[in-house]
Design a protein around this nucleic acid. Structure first.
Length: 573
DNA sequence: GCCGTTTTCGGCCCGACTGTTTTCAGTCG
C-alpha cells in the first residue's frame, strides 16, 4: 500500500510551496495528503481498476495531483517533488515535527547554516549558531532544543490510557475553582484517540485571569504561554495542556471548534458557508447575528445535521450520514453487560477469581469470564487441561455461593488458549468443548509471512470450539506493528465460522483498531469488547475499548458482550 | 491545485499568541 508514502511526499510539497510563499496551493496538496492517508482503499488498486479517472474521483485529487500519483505508481518518483528536493535537500517531515519549526524557519536555517535535518539543527542550536540569525533569538533557540528533546522521548505522542488519569486530576482541580462555571476536555482526548499529542481544556468563566493564574500555578509545570484567554503548560510527565476560556454564550461553539478533528471542522464550516452562515469558535452567525453558540447540539442542528458523537468526528463519512439523518446509534459503555477476557491469580494475575467477580459486579455487570492463559505460555504460568478442569470447580462454587446469596451475577468459565504456529490450539478439544467459551490468541512466532499467518488464524477460527480471537492483529501501539495478515480474508472466515473478533481495551493494544472495526461491522462480523485485565483495577479499561468501538461506528448489536448472560451463552459455538 | 445547490472563475478558516521586531511574520490548532 503506497498511500502513506505518497501522502508524505504531498505534505513535503506543501511545505516547499509554503517556503516560496505560494498561497492556497499548499492547502490543496495538504488536503490530498490527508485524504490519501486515511483512505481505506489502496491507491494502487484504485488506479489499476479505473486508471487516472478513478484517481480524480478521490476528494481533493484533481487532474494535476492524479498525474503525480500515476507518475509515482509507475516510476516510483515524482519529478516535481524531486526538483524541490534537489534545490533544497531537507528532511522536512523530520524538521517540521519540531514544535515551533515550520517551513519558513527551516528554509532560513538551510540557507544560512546548511541545516538539513534534526541532527544538524541540534548541533547548530547547541553551539548557539541559531540565536544570532535575523528573525531568531535566544528563546527560539532554546525552544528548538526542547522541541527536539520532546521528540526524542516520546515521538511526540502519548497513549490515551497513560494521559487520561493524570489530566483527570487537573480537570477536577480546575472544576472545583469557584471561577470555573463549566469545563470540558476538547481535542483528541475528547475524541478518545488512541494516542494524544496534547490535551485541550475548555472553560467558561467570567474571570478568565483567575483561571489562567491558577492554571499556570499548578505544581511541577513549565509555562509555554499565558494570555488572557489562552495558556499552555507542560507537565513533568512531558506532555502539554492547552487551556482556553470562553464566555458562556460561545461555549458550544468553542467546544465544537476545539474538539475537531480539523478535517471534520473544515467540512462543517463549508456547510455553514453554503447556507450563508459563518461558523467560528465564537458561534454560528448569519450576518452579524449569532444564531447558535451556547450548546453544541444547536450548532449541528442549525447546520441541518444530527449531533455527531466526538469519537466519530474524523470526516470519514459521519457528516454525510448526519446530514441524511442516518448516523448509527453507536455502542455506549452503559450497554456493556460483562467482560470475558479477565485473568486471575491462577496464572500470574493480581486478584483471585472471586475478587475479579466482585469488582465486575461492582461495575454493574451481569457476568465476568475468567480466561487465563494456557500451558504453552510457561512464562505466564499457563494452565493445563487438568488445572482448567479444577478451575471449573472453583467457578461453580462461586456461582452457587452467589446464587444462595440471591445474586444474579455469573462467572463464566473460559480460557485464553494459544494458537500454535500450525494453527492448532494448545489445549485438547475434549476439554475446550466443555468450557463456556474459548478465546484463542497468537502469542508466539509473530513474524510469520502473510500467507502462513493468515492460514494459521483461519485454522484456529475454523476450530468448532474457538469462539473468540483475542487481540486479532497483535499490534502494540508505538512499539510493535500488526502481524502480517490478510484481514479481509480473516473477516470472511470469521463471518462464515461465527467467530467473534475481540476489541482489546488495553491502552497499548486497542486491537482491533477503529478502521478494522468499521470493516468488520460492514461485513457483519461480531465483536466483543474485553479488557484483558490482569488485575481488578484494569476492568476500568473498558472505556478505552468502548471508545475504540465507537470510533469504528460499532452499534450495540455488533458487540456480543452487550447481550444478556443467556443470549451470549447461546451465541457461542 | 481543487472545487462547484453562488459551478469553469474566484474563492480557499482564521484568530491567538510568541518572539522577534518596532509593526508583524510565523506557527499552531
Amino acid at each position: 500500500m503506497k498511500n502513506q508514502e505518497i501522502a508524505k511526499i504531498f505534505y513535503e510539497i506543501a511545505d516547499y510551496l509554503k517556503m516560496e510563499g505560494v498561497s492556497f496551493k499548499p492547502y490543496a496538496y495538504e488536503r490530498a495528503a490527508i485524504v490519501l492517508e486515511s483512505l481505506e482503499d489502496d491507491v494502487e488498486d484504485i488506479y489499476r481498476k479505473g486508471g487516472i479517472k478513478a484517481l480524480e474521483e478521490i476528494p481533493g485529487v484533481g487532474k494535476s495531483i492524479a498525474q503525480k500519483i500515476e507518475e509515482y505508481l509507475k516510476t516510483g518518483e515524482i519529478k516535481y517533488y524531486k526538483q524541490f528536493k534537489k534545490n533544497m535537500p531537507l528532511d522536512l517531515s523530520e524538521l517540521t515535527a519540531i514544535e515551533g519549526m515550520g517551513p519558513k524557519k527551516a528554509k532560513i536555517l538551510y540557507e544560512k547554516l546548511g541545516i538539513k535535518n534534526i541532527k544538524d539543527v541540534e548541533e547548530a542550536a547547541r553551539s548557539h549558531k541559531i540565536a544570532p540569525l535575523f528573525g531568531f533569538g535566544e528563546k527560539t533557540e532554546k525552544n528548538i532544543l526542547e522541541g527536539i528533546e520532546f521528540l526524542k522521548r516520546n515521538k511526540g505522542r502519548f497513549l490515551l490510557g497513560n494521559i487520561l488519569p493524570i489530566v483527570e486530576q487537573i480537570y477536577q482541580k480546575l472544576k472545583q475553582l469557584k471561577e470555573v462555571e463549566k469545563i470540558s476536555f476538547c481535542g483528541s482526548i475528547r475524541r478518545m484517540k488512541e494516542t494524544i499529542g496534547d490535551v485541550d481544556l475548555l472553560v467558561v468563566s467570567k474571570k478568565p485571569e483567575k483561571v489562567m493564574d491558577f492554571f499556570v500555578s499548578l505544581p511541577n509545570i513549565k509555562i509555554w504561554s499565558k494570555g488572557t484567554t489562552k495558556a499552555s503548560i507542560r507537565l513533568k510527565e512531558g506532555f502539554d495542556i492547552d487551556i482556553r476560556v470562553v464566555p458562556q454564550k460561545s461555549y458550544g461553539a468553542a467546544l465544537q471548534y476545539f474538539t475537531g478533528s480539523k478535517e471534520h471542522n473544515i467540512v462543517l464550516r463549508k456547510i455553514a458557508i453554503e447556507k450563508g452562515m459563518k461558523l467560528s469558535e465564537y458561534g454560528l452567525f448569519k450576518g452579524s447575528k449569532m444564531i447558535a453558540g451556547e450548546n453544541e447540539e444547536e450548532i449541528y442542528k442549525k447546520l441541518g445535521l444530527e449531533w455527531i458523537p466526538p469519537e466519530m468526528r474524523e470526516n470519514q463519512g459521519e457528516i454525510e450520514a448526519a446530514l441524511e439523518k442516518r448516523l448509527p446509534k453507536i455502542v455506549s459503555i452503559k450497554d456493556i453487560k460483562g467482560d470475558l477476557h479477565c485473568h486471575s491469580n491462577w496464572n500470574g494475575g493480581e486478584n483471585s477469581i472471586l475478587e475479579m467477580a466482585l469488582a465486575a459486579e461492582n461495575l454493574g455487570y451481569e457476568y465476568i469470564g475468567i480466561a487465563d492463559h494456557t500451558k504453552f505460555l510457561r512464562i505466564e504460568n499457563g494452565l493445563d487441561e487438568k488445572q482448567l478442569l479444577y478451575q471449573k470447580r472453583q467457578i461453580d462454587e462461586i456461582n452457587s455461593k452467589f446464587e444462595s446469596q440471591g445474586k444474579k451475577f455469573k462467572v463464566l468459565w473460559g480460557c485464553e488458549a494459544n494458537i500454535l504456529s500450525d494453527g492448532s490450539i494448545d489445549i485438547k478439544n475434549e476439554v475446550l468443548k466443555k468450557m463456556d467459551y474459548v478465546i484463542a490468541g497468537v502469542h508466539s512466532s509473530l513474524k510469520m509471512n502473510k500467507n502462513t499467518m493468515t492460514e494459521r488464524l483461519i485454522k484456529a477460527m475454523n476450530n468448532p470450539n474457538v469462539d473468540i480471537i483475542s487481540h486479532p492483529t497483535g499490534r502494540l501501539i508505538q512499539k510493535r506493528d500488526e502481524y502480517s495478515i490478510d484481514f479481509e480474508k480473516i473477516l470472511r472466515v470469521a463471518k462464515d465460522s461465527n467467530t467473534i473478533l475481540e476489541i482489546n481495551s488495553s491502552p497499548e493494544r486497542l486491537d482491533l483498531k477503529d478502521v478494522y472495526i468499521k470493516k468488520a461491522k460492514e461485513m457483519g462480523v461480531k465483536m466483543i469488547i474485553n479488557t484483558d485485565s490482569h488485575q481488578k483495577e484494569q476492568l476500568r479499561y473498558i472505556k478505552f475499548g468502548v471508545a475504540q468501538a465507537r470510533r469504528g461506528w460499532a452499534e450495540k448489536e455488533d458487540i456480543v458482550n452487550t447481550y444478556s448472560y443467556r443470549d451470549i451463552l447461546n451465541f457461542f459455538k
